[in-house]
Design a protein around this nucleic acid. Structure first.
Lengths: 211, 211
DNA sequence: CCAATTCGATACTGGAAGGTATCGGAACAA
DNA sequence: TTGTTCCGATACCTTCCAGTATCGAATTGG
């Protein structure tokens, strides 16, 4: 009978793959992505920075695109943990605390890498639909959760447009990172929370001019 | 005496340059920038689409980067005219009218071209500082003017954080165009104006939780 | 008419980069 | 020990592309 073994690799005899090489290559990819963008990133430079051979890379990722996408996924995994969100008792405290843990330098590197990914999307029609690449999506999700908790507490009206309000800070961060290419400062975050997001949520009653 | 003529080109004898070629090339550049991004854009493809020879391009722009930057400037010139902003009497009407004139298709092309520019910035350290490339900057300026006019009318308190509020809609547009790659719909704009921007401006009194 | 310049088209050059192949050495299983 | 796989390194191939050069035709001023 044909196909005697569907899963033949039962005896991996030779040397084993070093998992450290994976993360070294992925980290080098993120670094370069943040520095020179997707097209400026060459596989040779990645291998160079990771102190790896190109063969080691291509044994794991068949193409440059696969490598970058996996690097972005690896970066996302290091981001916000939706299971362990801040819980300070007030929505204001929660939103401000959401930024605190990750030092701004880390956030800056992440943002710049994201800018590199944008260029990749431009050349890959169909990739945008998946949305798997976006760093900002989990952050919007975190904002949503915090706001829904506040609504359940009665801190903000149930009629508030949380879906929209949760996008304000992330979209502003995206704008600054991608276009302005400046890090988001603590001061700006406080202004966003106190003068934009919280007023919008509280005064969620429609506000058509004055009527 | 040396330097007899500082501006010698007083007798341009031969055939004259056709100004139509300039705009044809710039338009083709914007189109391709929106379709394939900066790195996916080749000078050969631009010349091809513009029905021009490469020599005609390089006679005008010494390098690909110069061409793209000029194309972006040309695109910006077709955008909002800060001298002829809407004046409906209410800030709400003005903000909503700011979007109306430009059909969404045009806005979509502009946004996608902007996404292509982002990739260029990633590879050109120092270009981000100039800010000359950003399509969104004039739009923020327009928002600022409309809001300042409303403040002068007494429609919104003078203490409102206009500088910040003016960035909300443009940054959201940038996020959707660059990351989500979807056009901004009229419905979303109305929600942004009524439930975020206007409440933020009216209730500009600090809102720290509840204190 | 004539010289100068522009036009579109095309061939060419030099370099950069994705991906493959190979090599000597190391780790690991039988 | 031996065969297999992984490792870093490097040479190599192929494709793509920015930028240049050239050609014949068209336009324009002298």
């Amino acid at each position: 009978m044909l196909m005697p073994e569907i899963d033949p690799p039962l005896s991996p005899r030779g040397r084993k793959r070093d998992p450290d090489r994976d993360i070294a290559i992925l980290e080098a990819t993120i670094d370069l992505l943040a520095e020179v963008g997707y097209d400026g990133l060459s596989t040779a430079k990645v291998a160079d920075r990771a102190l790896a051979g190109k063969g080691t890379m291509y044994r794991r990722w068949p193409t440059k695109t696969d490598l970058v996408l996996d690097a972005v996924a690896h970066m996302k995994a290091q981001q916000i943990d939706l299971e362990a969100l801040p819980d300070t008792g007030s929505l204001r405290g929660d939103l401000l605390a959401l930024f605190q843990p990750s030092d701004s330098a880390q956030l800056d590197r992440t943002s710049r890498a994201m800018a590199g990914v944008v260029s990749m999307i431009s050349q890959m029609p169909g990739l945008a639909e998946t949305g798997d690449y976006s760093i900002f999506a989990p952050w919007i999700a975190a904002n949503t959760i915090l706001m829904e908790r506040a609504a359940k507490r009665g801190e903000i009206p149930a009629a508030a447009d949380i879906a929209l309000a949760a996008q304000i800070i992330p979209s502003m961060a995206a704008y600054r990172a991608l276009i302005l290419r400046v890090a988001i400062e603590k001061d700006l975050l406080v202004r966003l929370v106190d003068q934009i997001v919280l007023p919008a949520l509280h005064e969620s009653t429609a506000h058509p001019s004055r009527r």
